[in-house]
Design a protein around this nucleic acid. Structure first.
Lengths: 151, 151
DNA sequence: CCTTGACCTAAAGTTAGGTTTAGAAATTAC
DNA sequence: GTAATTTCTAAACCTAACTTTAGGTCAAGG
């Protein structure tokens, strides 16, 4: 009941909408660092609600958990982040998001070209873009190639 | 050597850039249907190069394999797809892509608002958008909520 | 004919991001 | 003070999209 006892994991879960198991998992991934009370239970700061909200938003933008950890590492470790701190890392997110949008717009333009020519798989097809790193994660084929021009 | 013996799986792999194992996997998922030669080996049509190229492109757009199978089911089964057939299903892809882009643009606008206010996690924060289905697949938290206004 | 390389199947392994389970200990509620 | 919740850890399980492995078979070159 004392003011500075912090939130239990269940309370944090209710405040963020995350599952308790997800919060523990994020801790294992280094995204959040609670302290322990006398009985060994995790206790969280109120600022951690915001931290986890940020994690969820960044996931919507397609960041992996290691990437999010990286972004969060720019927050000050020694004090509660201020709105300015959050603003700073949000600008980084914005850059990431812009890049994803650009990639998709490029894909769309290329697809328009392909719709026009009906090709989809010719070597000259603009959808041949080996450098696209917008894929969700770890799977999928290596590159995009195609047919010989005839056929 | 005969004209209509079809491509062996290794040849198809080289033509598409996919791994042999991936092509077999796609078959198991119903994305491609080779026939078998006398010795039981898979043989593919030249049109399958294009089919697999389409699979790869659709994956870049974030479609799952079941979704891609669904899209491909609109191709004629009884004959080799024409450029017009491909054009028709590419237009469907285009719609899917447009929707993804719209979602990201909306997220970006909301993030801009949040950068402005420095909030990121207030209930009134526009990033609270439970209806976003643009997430890559099957994982991630349920909804986005936050902090009480103070703190 | 024989060897080598391509191909076969089935099953297990991989990564990301979690969830579920089991059994025990801490907290809270009455 | 006891019962009902929570929480704890560790390990197993889950899905998607593949890859790897193991133990054989097929096909092509010399």
């Amino acid at each position: 009941m004392a003011v500075s006892e912090g939130l239990a994991i269940g309370a944090l879960a209710r405040r963020t909408g995350l599952a308790v198991s997800a919060i523990r998992y994020y801790e294992a991934q280094g995204l959040i660092t609670p302290w322990r009370n006398a009985g060994g239970q995790r206790r969280y700061q109120r600022a951690d609600i915001r931290r986890l909200s940020f994690v969820m938003i960044a996931q919507q933008f397609g960041l992996t958990l290691p990437e999010i950890r990286e972004v969060l590492s720019d927050l000050p470790g020694n004090r509660t982040p201020t709105p300015q701190d959050w603003k700073a890392i949000s600008i980084g997110l914005r850059a990431h998001l812009d890049q994803r949008i650009d990639t998709l717009l490029r894909l769309r333009d290329n697809l328009d070209g392909c719709i026009g020519c009906g090709c989809l798989s010719l070597p000259k097809c603009a959808l041949y873009n080996p450098d696209d790193r917008a894929k969700s994660h770890g799977s999928g084929p290596r590159y995009l190639m195609g047919d010989a021009p005839e056929t």
